[in-house]
Nucleic acid binder design. Structure first.
Lengths: 342, 342
DNA sequence: CTGTTAGCGCCTTCAT
DNA sequence: ATGAAGGCGCTAACAG
């Protein structure tokens, strides 16, 4: 058994040309049934496997797609990637993963490396927004390779994106708290340089105003997405002269931290204080005091992102498509905010 | 600005040969400083980027590594992949992700696709064990490409693996329960066709015997790794004539389900019943009644797997190395099994 | 229906 | 110090 065989090896074996072998293997119609059969059998016998690298070099198509995320070990991003992979796999594409760790330098570096590796497209959730960054993005566009944002996007002309309606998510969460009778709703607002957090904040604010409630700056705390940040935030809020009676957290982790601190201080949830998070992390459902949260349907988002990429790559007319897909978030109400019968 | 340039474009621009350009760009010592500088500047000006695909075809080295996992959206596998990526990225390798969904057919298919894509190695956590499968694995070995198992391995000659000591994990968890005073310890044992679950089971059994406790077949339930399976298992156990007073679950999810059912039936944890899980999923720590669990240090496992791969690939002598790395599991005791002061 | 040729972009002998 | 040539493995255009 030969360890590695090329179409040339098969050709030599059969005393025919490599081109014929190639044609036979690729189901080219103008090949006699006899030779096709012969070639196929010999290929199998010699354990021939097509070298996709050579094919890629020749065709200019690698069938690889780069995916860039801040980190992969978060339920959200892992699920998005799962969706992407599941949608792309049947189409013969491979997914190459890169992490940025929220570091913009690494993000730009990753984009360049992926381009050098000749990926057919890049799907990414940005870490940051600057002018320099925008230029790099545009360079990708110039190469005529699809680049698609998911979740964390940036407004650049000609670039498609798949996001959820964060505004609506923030609005729904806040409205729900209002319906539960909460009067002073605080907000843990995340990194405001990112659109997603801006929009959750806007939704929160608008919901307050639409329901005749006063917007209070003191109730808005900029927090990181971590349990500790949530604990700290709750401490701050509870020490206010007039503490709030509810929190809409833009992050489940911060929400969890807040709940821990509230309990620590003997605050009764949901009777005296309600909490809603964002992200629908698995743990929100598992807790004894389950946490209400806004679901971002990451699997769906991944699949949709992949679909937009496929549309774009299969778009033979040369016109550039710009598609903005906005998924609808879904509020899952759980114990942490359910005062009425459940 | 040219959209795409090759060394030939640079050569033409400077009226020199492509070979010289290549040499200059690759820091070949026998190039005059003048031309090198010239080439570098022009390359920058023309926005030249090396085509890694061509390089890969020529050198037979793609700098891609395939990683095959049952699924990516579990904390464990996502963390392992993170570790792999972090270790491999600085070395210039890319990580290509494939999911099997525990389907052996897809696993074999994935291996073949990765080989055709000319990856430099394959890191995988197997889904299943059959003779056919073993043959495919051997075929990879014959190609002289490193293949490394992590977590879920299979004993094949010449293949390295990185695992944790599941036996020890099971032993420690069980011993801990004994120390807490539990007398009738049950075990939710997972898919016994996989080594990891076999070993956790063995550790459990041996711990019982070593401490003069009786091993009771009725207390061992084969369960899937899911909350529902845990609920069902708890129901079964509680309906026994002599129900157990503790559970060592080979899965955190099943452990969680069991806890939910125990509470449902009014059993007091940890006073009347202790539970220890396996995997140290994030939620085990977050619960109000936090769940004791055995940590598998997935990040470490990923990094170690990558290191073993690098060792193997950089091993110039042709001798085949077989390395079995076994990480030490760490029991995190939490409320679900802490009767004594915490 | 099949063979010949050429080229994707790169690097590396072998010359000079 | 540089150039010319060939080949990694594949397919598509051009011949017949």
């Amino acid at each position: 058994m030969v360890e590695k065989s090329t179409i040339y090896d098969i050709a030599k074996e059969l005393n025919i040309s490599a081109a014929t072998v190639s044609r036979a293997l690729n189901n080219n119609p103008k090949i006699s049934l006899a030779t096709r059969k012969l070639v196929e059998d010999t290929a199998a016998k010699m354990n021939y496997k097509q070298n996709k690298l050579a094919l890629a070099l020749r065709s200019g198509k690698s069938n690889n797609v780069g995916v860039i995320v801040p980190r992969i070990d978060s339920n959200f991003f892992a699920s998005v990637i799962r969706g992407i992979e599941e949608e792309l796999h049947p189409e013969g594409y491979h997914v190459i993963i890169c992490q940025t760790h929220e570091d913009q330098k690494r993000e730009i570096e990753n984009i360049n490396t992926l381009l050098n590796a000749q990926v057919d497209g890049i799907l990414l959730s940005i870490s940051n927004t600057t002018k320099e960054y925008e230029n790099v993005i545009k360079r990708v566009l110039n190469k005529n390779k699809p680049i698609i944002f998911f979740d964390r996007k940036m407004n650049v002309n000609g670039i498609s994106s798949v996001t959820i309606n964060d505004y609506e998510g923030g609005y729904a969460a806040t409205k729900h708290l209002i319906n539960e009778g909460c009067k002073r709703i605080a907000h843990l607002s995340g990194d405001q340089s990112l659109e997603i957090y801006q929009n959750r904040f806007k939704g929160y604010k608008q919901a307050l105003l639409d329901h005749g409630m006063k917007f209070n700056e003191d109730y808005v705390l900029r927090t990181k997405s971590s349990v500790d940040a949530g604990i700290a935030a709750a401490k701050t809020l509870l020490s206010l002269p007039t503490p709030p009676d509810a929190i809409f957290s833009s992050s489940d982790f911060a929400g969890l931290g807040a709940i821990q601190e509230l309990k620590e201080q003997g605050v009764k949830i949901p009777q005296d204080f309600c909490v809603v998070g964002f992200g629908n992390e698995p743990f929100t459902k598992f807790m004894e005091l389950s946490i209400s949260s806004v679901d971002q349907s990451p699997l769906e988002m991944g699949k949709m992102t992949a679909k937009v990429f496929l549309e774009q790559i299969n778009n033979t007319d040369n016109l550039r498509i710009e598609k903005k897909v906005i998924l609808v978030p879904e509020l899952h109400t759980r114990k942490s905010s359910s005062r009425h019968a459940n």
